[in-house]
Amino acid sequence: MHPGKVMNLQFTENTDTATFLPRQVADSIPFSSDKLPEIYSEFSVKPGSMEAEEMENTIKECESPGIKGEEKYCATSLESMIDFTNSKLGKNVLAISTEVDGQTKMQKYTIKTGVKKMAGDKSVVCHKQNYAYAVFYCHATKSTRAYTVPLVGDDGTKAKAVAVCHTDTSAWNPKHMAFQVLNVKPGTVPVCHFLPQDHVVWVSTN
């Protein structure tokens, strides 16, 4: 992430525009794979449809165990996301996301000066999932560093991208896409990636 570095990037935005439900409402609705018929009925989703499959996959992903060293949680309301974040990072936190000023097409982006490392080596990263209402898969991992990276595209598009670097990948699945792309093995080198626009990184401001 050095100034002047040029990369082919496209910052995708999830087409799922579902918003959070109030916590009281979200907590009153089942969120479990053994309650799928009830959930489908609640949201008038047809069993066997693509939407039903996406919702089932989201729930199963949330129910699966995390990898070693990962504390995971699926937030079904903004309040629950903040509570999980506070429990891992303390009360003084900041939420950052990738911001793109222009079209999100594939093009060459150049890193400008001003790359900034966020405080601490622990963060909570929350990824938007496909569901009937907003659900974020959040996970807290140690040995993780977050950066804000100013970028400019060939067409003049400006972006303030959020990059996350995982310095310990020893517990990751050896078949993880990152290892295939980089042609490296788990635990050998840090793995860094940019986050899509609708993902959120929480960092401590202490």
Rank of each mutant, 00 (worst) to 15 (best):
K46F: 03
T141I: 15
T167H: 14
Q180H: 12
N8E: 15
T188Q: 14
Q107Y: 11
I82C: 06
A161I: 01
P30D: 01
V45E: 10
E13H: 13
I29L: 13
I39G: 09
Q129N: 01
H193R: 01
R145V: 09
K35C: 07
T157W: 04
V45L: 12
S28E: 14
E42T: 13
C192Y: 08
K175E: 04
P174T: 12
A134C: 11
L151V: 13
D154Y: 05
D27C: 10
K5R: 11
L195Q: 02
Y147P: 04
W172E: 00
V115I: 15
L21C: 11
M1S: 01
N14H: 09
K175D: 09
K116A: 15
L36S: 05
Y133H: 08
G66A: 06
G69K: 02
H193N: 02
D198V: 07
K46L: 12
S41N: 06
E38M: 09
S33Y: 07
K158W: 03
V162W: 07
L182I: 12
I39W: 10
A178L: 09
I111W: 06
A163E: 03
Q180Y: 13
D83S: 12
E79P: 08
T113A: 13
A178I: 06
D155A: 09
V191L: 04
S32P: 11
E79W: 09
K122C: 05
P22L: 06
M177R: 12
V201M: 03
P190W: 03
D34H: 10
E56D: 12
S41R: 09
T12G: 11
D155E: 11
T148G: 02
S80N: 06
H127I: 10
N92D: 04
D198S: 02
M118E: 06
D198F: 05
Y137H: 02
P47L: 13
E54D: 15
A18Y: 03
F20R: 05
V124R: 00
M118S: 05
S41H: 02
L94D: 00
K185V: 14
H199K: 10
Y131D: 00
K160T: 14
D168R: 03
Q103S: 13
P3M: 03
A159F: 10
A146R: 00
K160N: 15
